[in-house]
Design a protein around this nucleic acid. Sequence first.
DNA 1: GTTTATGCAAATTCTTTGCAATACT
DNA 2: AGTATTGCAAAGAATTTGCATAAAC
Lengths: 144, 144
Amino acid sequence: MEQIINTLKKHGLRITDMRRDVLQCFAEVDYALNHQDLELKMSKGFDRVTLYRTIKTFEEKGIIHRIASETDSISYALCKDSCAENDHKHKHVDDHIHFTCHKCEKTLCLDAYHIPQIKIPDGFQVENIQLIVAGLCNKCSIHD
Amino acid sequence: MEQIINTLKKHGLRITDMRRDVLQCFAEVDYALNHQDLELKMSKGFDRVTLYRTIKTFEEKGIIHRIASETDSISYALCKDSCAENDHKHKHVDDHIHFTCHKCEKTLCLDAYHIPQIKIPDGFQVENIQLIVAGLCNKCSIHD
DNA sequence: GTTTATGCAAATTCTTTGCAATACT
DNA sequence: AGTATTGCAAAGAATTTGCATAAAC
């Protein structure tokens, strides 16, 4: 909670219920959440539009980052400190691998597993790399 | 054209205008197309609903594969033969890198560039890997 | 002649915008 | 007090479903 307020302050955002709740949602889980996941986790009575705006703000400030996945459109996860340095024109740098489970449908950040060096054709400029592995996560692969 | 008809036949699909047109669109470009791209490329007068169904069918049959990207939702590209072997329960296997350009916003299949070997934590089962590099493509990086 | 695919209407769901009321600092 | 954020209404897109018609085999 202390943590959450600090995060907001650090990025120059006012402390509001919605923002606290959303950050709380992310703090409670170890996987990425999409818009719908957040709606379901939120205490009911919240406003959908505000949620859209909150997500957008967090993304712009570098508090959360997008994770693309083939299955469920776009989901989000908290950024590590290393990536949230720059308030204006935040450019997210992900160096870890994401894993999407086909069974529980959760997307995890494998923070300890880094994206290897890769080759790209001449003339291409790399700004950002995403590596998404899909399959069965450690929990789901047991019952298989 | 011959090619297109063969593709449809090979997957047990009837030859229709819509299907021919959609495959034609993919054949004409060397980058991935999303739903909206296809709408714009299609000869006008087509039906949006049928396009949804066509994309879905092609995906199920393994004629096209999804490419996730943070920016534009989901796009599609033609599968190589190697990946379209299995009609029922098609499981797409991509071994090449995808590149999304931030300027022209196109997503390319870098067929000649393969995803390197990666490490995953114990207990996770890998079924599929996507590596998406974003930045400036060879054409757009020139004017920069 | 059968079966599959299409086109249309309509229902749902998702996302964005504008603006007045409210809450934060 | 001054500014940022919210909540609501409403508009605009995107996506899905059902069903009768038309096209493919």
